[in-house]
Simulated scan of single mutants.
Amino acid sequence: MKLRLAINGFGRIGRMLVRAYLANHDYFKDLEIIAINDIAEAQTLLHLLKFDSTHGRLQANVHLYENQLIIQKNNQTLCQILLLNQPNPQQLIWHQLDIDVVLECTGHFRSYNDANLHRLSGAKQVIIGSAPFDMVDASVVVGVNDDTLSRTLPIISGVSCTTQALVPLLNTLHQTFGIDSVMMTEVHAVTADQTVLDQAHRDLRRGRASGQNIIPTTSSSINASIRVLPFLNGKLSGHSIRVPTVNVACIDVTAVFTHTPTLNDVSNLLKTTSQTTLRGIMDYTDEPLVSSDFIGDTHSLIIDGSQLMQAGNQFKILAWYDNEVGYANRLLDMCLVLAKR
């Protein structure tokens, strides 16, 4: 039987989940998107799915029939998704729809108790599509610890797009060279919680105009990475810099290793790993590319071999990632693992 999914919150990640599902429908054939819940009107959700300023027009026919989103391709109906409009997760009808997993993508219900409202409404499991506010039953990075996924885990965190990029890199480096210390700078495109013009915000810097400022802020990936890789505790720190682009981010990592390698050792390790154990998760390029060249890339991270550097015992590694498409694919990968358990 297919794993029955519901998406709560049809914003950037929610819509990318549907696009990723449609783009690789055969691969995700063991999954079925049953329902989407969002407080916006159905016609608005339809329009935002069809037309996207970053990723272009949806390569499928999509229309509304009563309260369902009908998606067709090559005269074949791929999805019939029920649209719900309920602001309170506890009032949703997941029990009636026999939902296996709710992908919580609003960005609001990130505490354990809030995410658990979906289970009180009848869902069997919840995957929070971001770093959690507090505890969860598992924090999962695909390619590193997704073997811990189980149908018995009530609340799971898919951590963040940056964590999905950073953890496979650091785990790979640590297994071969050992990590003494790491500093990470996340250079990230603007997100929906930022503002066009200066206004009040819980983060005074993120409240400044996003289109005309480079904005330092915190990165949830630091604590999330330590949750997944406890050996990083006391060895990893860093922050985020928001820049005026709409998509694609990179991590700029400076590491000191226990067993100091050569620059070629680091390059060869990352290149080999991208072709073997982390194939489909990590990629490697030597081409002189810029951020927009990675729009639509489904990998968690793409190592930029041209930017590998060494100064003394310090090594710098730069990795790109589409913070929307790559992350949406990882959430679906997690669901695919659960479908086979």
Rank of each mutant, 00 (worst) to 15 (best):
L204D: 12
T260F: 11
L48Q: 14
D98N: 15
L263E: 10
M16W: 13
T54Y: 01
A131I: 03
R19D: 05
S219D: 11
D98I: 05
A40H: 04
D30G: 03
G9N: 00
N116H: 04
K2G: 04
D180W: 14
Q194E: 11
I13E: 00
T162Q: 08
A209D: 09
P168W: 08
Q125H: 01
D147R: 15
M309A: 12
N213P: 08
M184P: 03
V159Q: 08
S300N: 10
D283T: 01
V62N: 02
L64R: 02
D52L: 14
D26F: 10
I214P: 09
D98M: 03
A23C: 02
R202W: 13
P154F: 00
T245A: 12
N8H: 15
Q164M: 02
M309N: 10
L82F: 03
L48S: 13
L117Y: 03
L336E: 07
T191S: 12
A311H: 02
E324D: 11
R57K: 14
N171T: 08
D114R: 09
C79I: 05
V290D: 02
V228C: 09
Q96G: 07
D293S: 14
I281W: 08
N313V: 14
T185F: 14
N329C: 07
T148C: 12
R330K: 02
V196Q: 06
I93N: 11
E66N: 12
N116W: 00
L84M: 15
I295V: 13
S139A: 14
N264V: 12
N88L: 06
